[in-house]
Nucleic acid binder design. Sequence first.
DNA 1: TTGCGTGCAAAGGTTTTGCATGGCA
DNA 2: TGCCATGCAAAACCTTTGCACGCAA
Lengths: 139, 139
Amino acid sequence: MGSKSSYKTKQGDELRSFLESVPGKHITAADVCEYFRASGKTIGMATVYRQLERMVDEGIIAKYSIDAGSPACFEYLGQHLGEDTCYHCKCQVCGKLLHMHCEELPELQKHILEHHGFSIDPVRTVFYGVCQQCREEGK
Amino acid sequence: MGSKSSYKTKQGDELRSFLESVPGKHITAADVCEYFRASGKTIGMATVYRQLERMVDEGIIAKYSIDAGSPACFEYLGQHLGEDTCYHCKCQVCGKLLHMHCEELPELQKHILEHHGFSIDPVRTVFYGVCQQCREEGK
DNA sequence: TTGCGTGCAAAGGTTTTGCATGGCA
DNA sequence: TGCCATGCAAAACCTTTGCACGCAA
């Protein structure tokens, strides 16, 4: 695996630099197309999905499949490819996807690996629940 | 919300008792249809989805939308409608969805609520990662 | 009888795939 | 020149919706 030869293409470069320009933001395939259209360029949906899939495999972006019928969203990982990973929280009420830095999570990760044999991938894991704002506004 | 009058129907009863008969198992809408067909009965896909949605609203089953293009799966919650909730782990290698009982998770839940303002819903939250078996088999 | 549940078919949306063309090396 | 990437269209897939009919209350 990982032995794919790959060409450098205009679309791939533009897509990558677009994603790099919005670190921490969650982008759908449709967002990418719209961005290209707004820039006067075009890109096919199939190309977007193929490029994104490749980048996920390479580990430079993350893919989140939050809900059943809604589009997957992608996020440039950039420099937090190390210990400074942040987890994600998805509010079931307002639908927002939040970032969370928590010092206890690496410990939990370690505990679950040692006691339950499961190695958590922080990049793909999403906590579902209710955010503070929605909780304060009464459910 | 929640003020729906509801009729008792043959399909609803059979679906419910089928789900009750496989506690802790993960069932898709297609699985339900197949089970009915195998029993000599039939049920429409739309009915399955509508009944399942209702049961999710009632809190007696949980719905997991794990991957982008694959079907959502449902699970009868039964008696663990309380503190004895279990979390789920999805192995990205073999695709299995595992149950995990962990005493530390309620504490984490509390910590995140108090320090990060986010109220986690254990029923919907899924940890992504790699299971023990896959880890031992290399990769 | 009233109105909800069901079933079929059609629509909706996201993602994947086939195939001819164009671009990178 | 060889091979990969692209783009368009079509397909595949899961899920939702519309509408007429049937069944529960």
